[in-house]
Write a protein that binds this DNA or RNA. Sequence first.
RNA 1: GGGCCUGUAGCUCAGUCGGUAGAGCAGGCGGCUCUUAACCGCAAGGUCCAGGGUUCGAAUCCCUGCAGGCCCGCCA
Length: 513
Amino acid sequence: MPTGEELTEERRLKRDRLKQGGTEPYPYGFPDRTPMASVRQELQGQAPGGELSGVVRRVAGRLLTVRQHGKTAFLPLRDQTGELQLFLRVDDLGEDAYRQVLETIDPGDLVGAEGVPMVTRRGEPSVRATSVVLLAKSLRPPPEKWHGLQDTEARLRQRYVDLLSSAETLRRFEARSALVTEMRRYLGSQGFMEVETPVLGRVASGGLAHPFLTHYRFLEEDFRLRVALELPLKRLLVGGFERVFEIGKVFRNEDLDADHSPEFTMMELYWAYADYTDVRHLVEGLTEDLAKVAAPFLSKEEAEARVRDFTPPYPTIDYVEALEKESGIPDLVDLPRERLVALARECGAKVHEGMSHGAALDKVFGHYVEAKLDRPTFVLDYPVETTPLAKRHRSKPGRVERFELFYKGIELGNAYSELNDPDDQEARFREQLPPPSRTGAHEEEEAYAYDEDFVEALRYGMPPAGGLGMGVDRLLMAMLGASSIKDIILFPPTRAKAGNTTPSPASSAGPSK
RNA sequence: GGGCCUGUAGCUCAGUCGGUAGAGCAGGCGGCUCUUAACCGCAAGGUCCAGGGUUCGAAUCCCUGCAGGCCCGCCA
């Protein structure tokens, strides 16, 4: 029965037939299960046609397809660890049970079985089933067994279908988990303590971005979702914690594309009594370690390339030297603001007239230098006006102690010797604020918001410290070779389907365009 | 935000010059005791993304919209 509803109805009928026969189509569990990979392991070295006589194993998973040959049938199942086929014979199950199983199951159903691990005459590891039970009826047919789910939109909107039909997708998100777990373990081994700080706040500072707005009913105030983790973590250094980190979602109300998602995961750490050089060596250790953990999830060639790329030390280049060398323009950094804005425009960047010197410089740098940084490379010592939260350089006037790590043309991390002079911090925040003449809501949101309480915290004294921020999704893209951030995020944001929009009270509070 | 591309059966895809809709998989019925996208036979299955226009006639041409992808710009 060919339409989608008819296919669903056909499966409902099978389910109801089972129910009428006294079989529960959604039972409560399936205890004492052995993972597919373990059964395969047990069968290693078993000759074709042989079986583990006397051994009984229970396996469960999603039914991939049914290959029936009259009185025998092969039912490949998949669980999280892998695939294994059931071998069904009338001789093992009896006529009635055999017929009932084949008449009521469909590809996509969750199925459990008990039987003897064996290897078929054709050499395929299998379980010769002595009983088969339905564990959950699937009412929807799974995607085509050979091509899988190709529709990129469906894969994002219904990630569960992508996952259940693609072992590769499942594996990629296992890799994500393994890498984030390793990041926590590694930082813990270096003495860092994981903390959690608020997502909702009155000011969204620590980064340059449009915040999401929301309303806090109890406090009767508009709040913003954080755009960075930096300022609360530094307050903790003031309080006396010496090595802290946080891994959490941050929110920037901007475009979604191949390497940006409005909601993404950030890792930031702050390290008292250290500086950005210490942080640089920590980043080398961390990324080297993560590349090794990523390796088993990659093809042999890719794994070797990744481990080779992330073998420290990584080259360092000076921001100004690199920029002048790549652009061929001497003293580019010292050009007046207007000239820089014009230059940024020539580089193809979107510019607006009031754009700051630092912002224009960043565009020019991105054009001439960043795109060319293929191997992991640290760019050191940015001009002071690009970076309001970093400490002035100890020996290079007009610069701050800051580095960014680039790989394959994208930024993976950003670190400073943290600014801890409260008066300098206050002044640097104020320089970032747009001149009053053009204080539109738009530009105001884009400046590093002035966080008065943070400056107050610094007045109590923050130890000298090094700090780091890494975009976790991008780091994972780099490690796993993903070309889109959507391949790394389980449920990326999608537009509402037509006629399916939910009216939102917060949308009217968003920045007007 | 600008440019290009895509949207046809549950899934993967064809569809010529504008002439009234095709295949494979999945599903139904029948056959088959070692398959690997099993195989063989039979029958069935459509809001051609939505709306409008041109035309005797539109999946096909035009316009608008919706959704997605890629490139560019941009925040990580």
